[in-house]
Write a protein that binds this DNA or RNA. Structure first.
Length: 492
RNA sequence: GGUCCUGUGGCCGAGUGGCUAGGCAGUGGUCUGCAAAACCAUCUACAGCAGUUCGAAUCUGCUCGGGACCUCCA
């Protein structure tokens, strides 16, 4: 197994250090990633996080780990704000659109899957929903109450942060001190039920007008947002598991609360390695639903947007993201995307050349050394941009072999092909863009005829006619290229 | 205001106490009737100031910018 020969290092948000990854069970990895709240379309920023963790998941698989990848769908409990009258986001949308909450959930879950599929994300092994795990959440609350870290008030249950902090460190993940948190809190209306403004809801009492509610030991209500992840990760990955990931913006309070809940319920910290994917920015600012600074994947794929003015293939966007490290902020712009697109094409061209490259008695470069660099890059906290740079190094070499300037043996070629394909397609999750041959056969026939006539003109050195044909076709959005090996055309 | 992150060449982005990723653009070339494409080569850099050091873009301090979180957000 590859993982035995590769020392994988992961930046652990909990310690702030790059650590050697050691799974709890040799050869197995439990991976939990916070999924979306399905009350509206995923935007491109959301997608970046899921693409980042998809790549991480893929590399773990490539190393031969048996990974159980769990990513939740939040379909209840995510409040608009923390005030007592805070409304569930899904219930709110359902009310506004006069639909069943589950219709909202279904619509945006399907949308989420569709979009991630276009980005060639692998589905997680388990995709549990909050509403499907009400019982588990209630049980976890009972454990937390039993252990003395939560209290009931008017049908709601709150986590007692200050009590927890007496024996634990609330703020460990987000590097905050509880005193600072207390002094920094604003007093919101309708929080009188809480002992402290830091306390967060494990269970909320449902007012009669609420449409999403379940019976519980404390009456009709619904679970708090932070709790579902704790309950479901525990159920499917155990009380302690290897990696928990999510967007940087979930670090506080969401993940901090998860640590607190898990520790309060079991006495042990629930996660060994916390990983946080960084934000995608647009105009230098984080993409965010609440500020409207977003770009929808659909707008990008269709070209139907003001910012870019043309369409981009999802895989090109994915490649664009691969050129930045997951933990760095990445700024989105048309210029950067265009650059990525050209680079992507170059890399794919080189990878296609692998199939019928001329081989020689010896290799003029150290192929194994080059491949080792691929692994070194990914072993270093999944450093895809460095991986990409080495793949370009390989691409340059492949072109040189084709041009007869460098040589490669049959064996080395086989190894290089295998590894390049593994990293480009399996690990980074890129695909060859299918030349969308929508054109009808009749167009092919017509084009053959036209190009033949043009070829005739060229042979007669009738450049005027030949160029006129090319220019006219160009106007009709068909590009003609005269390569050494012949003429090719492509509809734009 | 508090906590934290960050500032790299025209653009995007790695990296790091000395060996100066990569992509795009630019420039030069190969090819071509011309063009396009493709391929090859190549220039431009580490926000500012001070300090530590034989040596810093990389460490420290300050200054100035940008951002994230502290309300919901991947």
């Amino acid at each position: 197994m590859l993982y035995k020969d590769n020392e994988l290092k992961i930046t652990n948000s909990l310690t702030g250090k790059k650590e050697v990854f050691k799974p709890i069970l040799d050869g197995f990895v439990g991976l939990y990633v916070c999924g979306p709240t399905v009350y509206s379309h995923v935007h491109l920023g959301n997608c970046r996080t899921f693409i980042s963790f998809d790549t991480i998941y893929r590399y773990l698989l490539h190393l031969g780990y048996k990974v159980r990848y769990v990513r939740n769908i939040t379909d209840a409990g995510h409040l608009e704000n923390d005030a007592e009258e805070g409304e569930d986001k899904i219930a709110k949308k359902a009310r506004l659109e006069q639909l069943e909450p589950m219709e909202i959930v279904q619509r945006y879950t399907l949308d989420f899957h569709k979009i991630l599929g276009q980005f060639n994300n692998l589905p997680p092994n388990i995709e549990p929903t909050a509403t499907g795990h009400i019982i588990e959440q209630i049980e976890m609350i009972l454990d937390i109450i039993d252990n003395g870290f939560a209290y009931e008030a008017n049908g709601s249950v709150y986590f007692d942060v200050e009590k927890y902090n007496e024996s634990n460190n609330y703020g460990e993940l987000s590097k905050r001190k509880i005193e600072d948190l207390i002094s920094g809190t604003r007093s919101l209306d309708g929080q009188e039920e809480k002992k402290s403004p830091l306390d967060f809801a494990l269970w909320k009492d449902a007012k009669p007008e609420h449409i999403m509610k379940w019976p519980s030991p404390w009456g009709l209500g619904f679970p708090g947002w932070h709790l579902e992840c704790s309950a479901m990760s525990t159920k499917y990955l155990g009380e302690k598991f290897d990696i928990h990931g999510g967007g940087m913006d979930l670090k506080f309070p969401h993940h901090e609360c998860e640590i607190a809940q898990g520790t309060a319920a079991t006495g042990e910290k629930p996660v060994n390695y916390w990983m946080h994917a960084n934000m995608l920015t647009l105009n230098g600012k984080k993409m965010s639903k609440s500020t409207g600074n977003t770009l929808l994947p659909e707008e990008l794929f269709s070209g139907n947007n003001e910012a870019l003015g043309r369409a981009y293939h999802p895989i090109v966007v994915r490649f664009f993201m691969m050129q930045a490290h997951y933990a760095s902020v990445l700024d989105f712009s048309a210029e950067a995307l265009n650059a990525a697109e050209k680079g992507f094409n170059r890399l794919m061209e080189a990878s296609k050349l692998l199939k019928d490259l001329q081989t020689s008695e010896s290799s003029s470069i150290d192929i194994n050394g080059l491949i080792a660099k691929f692994y070194t890059a990914m072993n270093d906290d999944f450093n895809t941009p460095v991986l990409v740079s080495h793949l370009f190094e390989a691409a340059k070499f492949i072109q040189a072999v084709k041009a007869g300037k460098e040589t490669i043996t049959t064996n080395d070629l086989a190894v290089l092909s295998k590894e390049m394909n593994a990293f480009i397609f399996d690990v980074m999750g890129l695909t060859e863009l299918s030349e969308e041959k929508e054109e009808s056969d009749s167009l092919d026939i017509v084009m053959d005829l036209v190009l033949q006539m043009r070829q005739q003109a060229r042979e007669n050195k009738d450049w005027t006619t030949a160029d006129a044909i090319r220019d006219k076709l160009n106007e009709a959005k068909i590009t003609v290229k005269d390569d050494k090996d012949g003429v090719t055309w492509k509809a734009k």
